[in-house]
Computed example of a mutant assay.
Amino acid sequence: MVKVAVRGFTAGVAAEVAQAVRGARGVLLDLRGNSGGLVDQAVGTASLFLDGGPVASYQERGERRELTAARGGDTTVPLVVLVDGGTMSAAELLAGALQDRSRAVLVGSRTFGKGTVQQPSRLADGAVLELTVGRYATPAGRSPDGTGLTPDVPQPPGGDPEAVTRLADTVLSGLGRGQMG
């Protein structure tokens, strides 16, 4: 089993995750405290575990835009995604896609609920302005904006991060029974 913590979707993260999970017989993807980042990196990470198909959609200037996973991802490796109230934006986009497409079990607590799409624009003085251009929806049409995503397996009472990790390990072991042995 491989544990990978992704704290933000910065440039190159999808490639780093791909390297970390290569040959894994089970993956625990920890998105707790991930405030989001580059949507293309979240979609790239989704592509590692999906064989094409929808990741999310959003409306921009009245036009529906689709975010789609690349073909060829590993759809057989057992996958658990850890989430919490600090999981937001692009991290929710990824978690929601994997949950809606029955590709991963989400373990932890409700996510933050930031389902907006921002487009950065560089100003003349070098500053960057982030303009909200839409709200995204998961493949099943759910918008996490304002409500967050509900995990499939809620964290144990008390919210101890180590107890949540142990619970995720147990779930992953159950998913991989016969594959990881």
Rank of each mutant, 00 (worst) to 15 (best):
R135A: 07
R64V: 13
R32C: 08
A70F: 04
V39P: 00
A15N: 07
G174Y: 02
D30M: 11
A70S: 14
L123V: 00
R177K: 02
A90M: 12
L28M: 15
A46K: 09
G37R: 02
A124E: 02
T75H: 06
D84R: 00
G23C: 00
D51F: 09
A5Q: 14
D169Q: 15
V21Y: 13
G115T: 13
P120F: 05
G181A: 04
A56T: 11
A97Y: 05
V39C: 07
R71V: 03
G85N: 02
T165R: 10
F9R: 03
L129N: 05
Q119I: 00
L106Y: 12
A91G: 14
P78D: 02
S173D: 15
G96L: 13
G113W: 04
T147A: 13
G176W: 04
Q19R: 13
Q119T: 00
E16N: 06
V83S: 05
V21C: 11
S109N: 01
Q119P: 00
Q59M: 07
E162K: 11
S109H: 02
P154I: 08
A124S: 03
R25L: 05
P156K: 03
D51M: 04
S102L: 05
V105M: 03
R32H: 07
A56V: 13
D169T: 14
R166M: 10
Q155C: 01
L93H: 14
G178V: 01
V153H: 05
A95V: 13
L29C: 13
G113L: 06
G134N: 04
